[in-house]
Design a binder for these strands. Structure first.
Length: 200
DNA sequence: CACCCGATTATCT
DNA sequence: GATAATCGGGTGT
């Protein structure tokens, strides 16, 4: 059984304003451990922030059974089904004055288990720059589903986020969020500049 | 490459 | 009944 060497980010990392966390998650590693011996991972290269007073956020209209994790403690996974057939993976992040907030992880640069991800995802036909490029492709590549909703991402387990590299401020670009119809002017999508694994 | 559309479910009106 | 933090396959240029 391989030793898992990646160090999870502590809960305090997520206990800050959602926008800052969204930026600082770039360059971190999303780690998926399957059956305690298969390790899949990727460097986060694209994120989006969703806050409480944000018409585009699931939290905007108040708590319900789907979004309740967004109103809970920080550092936990919020996974939900979109368009009836894809899962989106988020991390709960907010400062103590906010009741809800999360960061959508939209794209990864594959690091560990690229061959396994290619088999599972069947996206991109042999190219590695489409495997986890987009929120639905990412969850498919790492086999993330509703069973991971509410999981603690600050401890080594089936799914966690770890330290990896630091992205210089120069290389963080803010853009409009993708696929929303409300609050479309906010520049709350963050990408690693010139990285080919960012969704198009 | 651009556009169009169907899939399929939780939530809201 | 409509819409949604999406994707892949189809058709046309």
């Amino acid at each position: 059984m391989p030793r898992i060497e990646y160090e999870p980010l502590p809960r305090v990392f997520y206990a800050r304003d959602t926008i800052s966390v969204a930026k600082e998650l770039l360059g971190k590693l999303l780690v998926r451990v399957i059956d305690k011996n298969i390790i899949l991972s990727g460097m986060i290269v694209e994120t989006e922030a969703y806050t409480l007073n944000d018409p585009a956020s699931h939290a905007f209209k108040g708590i319900n059974n789907r979004n309740r994790i967004m109103f809970g403690d920080v550092g936990y996974a919020y996974v939900y089904l979109i368009y009836g057939n894809h899962y989106c993976f988020n991390v709960v992040a907010k400062d103590s004055s906010m009741s809800a907030g999360a960061v959508l992880i939209r794209a990864l640069q594959p690091i560990d288990g690229i061959d396994v991800m290619q088999k599972v995802s069947r996206s991109g036909g042999g190219r590695d720059d489409r495997i986890a490029s987009g929120p639905g492709r990412l969850t498919k590549a790492l086999s993330i589903g509703k069973e991971h909703n509410g999981i603690d991402l600050t401890v080594r387990g089936p799914l966690y986020i770890a330290h990896y590299v630091n992205i210089d401020k120069e290389y963080i670009v803010a853009t409009k969020r993708i696929g929303i119809t409300k609050a479309t002017d906010k520049l709350w999508r963050f990408i690693v500049k010139d990285n080919k694994y960012v969704s198009k």
